[in-house]
Simulated scan of single mutants.
Amino acid sequence: MTSHDFKRSSFDSCVYFKKNNDGSLVYLLLYVDDMLIAAKDKGEIRKVKAQLSEEFEMKDLGPAKKILGMEILRDRKTSKLYLSQKGYIEKLLCRFNMRSAKPVNTPLAAHFRLSSALSPQSDDEIEYMSHVPYSSAVGSLMYAMVCSRPDLSYAVSAVSRYMANPGKEHWKAVQWILRYLRGTTDVCLQFGRTEDGVIGYVDADFAGDLDRRRSLTGYVFTIGGCAISWKATLQTTVTLSTTEAEYMAITEACKEAIWLKGLFSELNEDLQISTVFCDSQSAIFLTKDQMFHERTKHIDVRYHFVRDIIARGDIVVSKISTHENPADMMTKSLPITKFEHCLNLVGVHC
């Protein structure tokens, strides 16, 4: 690619781009043997395809309809683009015999209180679980979550902690997620034209892990109101308060914001300063407080880099109401109305 004047992105090694003499850009996304080419001028796309087909045996599949199990749907009248995994999810349900299961409204119900104490205790239970495709099911759900389903983040994060020794209750939770997918196969991400920059939302669930009492970090980033990056993960250390948990979550979200900002600026998008919204006023205060007093001296130094980022003005951290924070769905089970509101806030539509 570089021999054809393409530059490799320093933020994502799968992204290549080339600037033409007239200032227009050609983007090429390469993942193993799958390739997507995007440009304003179709002639430029044809030129790149001709150059590549001289060197490689290639199959031209025409306008992009599918890549890596994700379906790309276009509505040119409304200038909207949809990313869906309907086909993949239907195959997934078929594989785990859940096609005729009764659908549910949320990815994980509040009554699931998962912990390692629910791992198999008796020989019968160990024997039963040895025939359950737990790891395979969780791995398959994880792929759906990573590609186009931010709504699964919290649920998949919860069930993936018990891959080494799952019990019956853990398997019931996985089946619940599959039942949720059974009723939401049509859910997709909806993208449209926008002038808005990258906006992030972050939340934390203090001591949510029942085994080691670690907190959960959840964040989601949007552009034009549609999710482009999301994560739900356990924090590496135990925090002593909700404020600390939120502070560490803000640090993780700011690292992602810096990466996204760099990627977009490299792709010739002059984005505004990224804003990260958090619903904890005390955590926001902590990010701006340069004093290492009693409350923060035990927090690992690597979490304090967020203070320099904010002091320089690279990222802005602002307060948002809990009711308007879609990252809430990344850290806990929510009632159906609140859950649907979070999905609407990040462009996840049926």
Rank of each mutant, 00 (worst) to 15 (best):
Leu210Trp: 06
Ile315Gln: 03
Gly200Gln: 00
Ala137Trp: 00
Met142Leu: 14
Gly139Cys: 12
Ser122Ile: 04
Tyr180Glu: 00
Ser122Met: 08
Asn20Asp: 11
Cys342Trp: 05
Ile310Thr: 07
Lys42Gly: 10
His293Tyr: 15
Glu55Ser: 08
Asp123Arg: 10
Arg113Ile: 08
His323Glu: 12
Phe11Gln: 00
Val138Met: 04
Asn21Leu: 13
Leu210Gly: 01
Thr296Glu: 08
Lys65Tyr: 09
Ser282Cys: 08
Leu234Met: 07
Asn325Ser: 07
Lys91Asn: 09
His323Asp: 08
Gly225Glu: 01
Gly167Asn: 05
Leu81Gln: 03
Thr296Pro: 03
Val138Ala: 03
Asn344Gln: 11
His304Ile: 06
Phe6Glu: 01
Gln281Val: 13
Asp33Thr: 03
Thr222Met: 07
Ser79Asn: 11
Ser135Tyr: 11
Glu246Ala: 09
Glu71Met: 05
Phe11Asp: 01
Lys59Pro: 01
Glu71Pro: 01
Ser53Val: 05
Thr106Ile: 15
Leu28Asp: 00
Glu246Trp: 14
Tyr88His: 09
Met70Trp: 07
Asn20Gln: 12
Ala207Lys: 04
Glu244Thr: 03
Ala50Val: 06
Arg113Tyr: 09
Leu118Met: 12
Pro133Arg: 02
His349Thr: 09
Val146Ala: 13
Ala311Asp: 08
Ser274Gln: 03
Arg95Ala: 00
Ser79Ile: 02
Ser122Gln: 04
Ile37Phe: 10
Glu244Arg: 04
Leu81Ser: 02
Gly262Ala: 11
Cys342Pro: 03
Thr243Met: 14
Thr217Gly: 05
Val317Asn: 01
Lys18His: 11
Leu343His: 03
Leu181Gly: 00
Ala207Phe: 09
Asp308Thr: 07
Gln235Phe: 14
Ser122Thr: 15
Ser116Cys: 07
Leu263Thr: 02
Arg8Lys: 12
Tyr154Met: 06
Val202Tyr: 11
Thr237Ser: 15
Gly23Pro: 00
Glu266Cys: 07
Thr239Glu: 10
Lys168Val: 10
Asp314Cys: 10
Ala117Asn: 09
Ser84Ala: 15
Cys14Ile: 00
Trp176His: 14
Tyr219Trp: 12
Cys14Thr: 07
Ile299Arg: 09
Ala173Arg: 07
Ser116Leu: 08
Ala158Trp: 05
